[in-house]
Amino acid sequence: MRWLIACVLAVSSSFAVADGPVYAELQFGAGGVDNSDLSFYPTFGSVNVGVYVLPNFGIELFADSGLTTDTSGDFELEMEQAYGIAARFQSPPIRGTQGYIVLGAVNFTLDQQASSAGALPASSINEDFTGARVSIGVMQRLERVRNMQVSFEYRHYNAGEPLRLDALVLGLRFNTP
């Protein structure tokens, strides 16, 4: 019983002492899109704004915007934009490090262009997808900057389609005091 009380106090105190309930995060991601036997690696930026509604459980809004396209074969692909809402589950901090899982609903847009080549005509495909977004990652609190953390996560977008979209994402997170 004493162990249980100690754990509850530890969690409560870390929430109360560390950060305020609101946070924002800037992220840079490199996506991987597999289409048939072609692979594309476009990059994107992301902004998340969230609030903790329970200790280590937050609700956040996110928006992604494409930064660079990638070319494979005759095609150029961009992850044009994404937005959605997600729930964040994170572990209590251990020496400033926390693990987290983010589950969300997402709408994302992919844009694929093929330029004309000889007699082959140009083609353009811009398609919206709605589905789930799953992230798993770790955060490390910075020692010299208060209320700031860096994060690294693996992210998967799933719209129930054969076309696969994954990403590796680096982030900088600001917590209200």
């Binding site: 709605t130 789930a132 719209a159 054969p162």
Partner: peptide, 26 residues
């Protein structure tokens, strides 16, 4: 609220068609 958000996410229907991307390659 948290429960409602989670339920919404779980119930979110998948939409979108990736076949045009594959057809373009084809």
């Amino acid at each position: 609220l948290a429960s409602a958000v989670l339920a919404t996410m779980l119930l979110a229907a998948c939409e979108g068609d990736s076949s045009p991307f594959e057809e373009a390659v084809e």
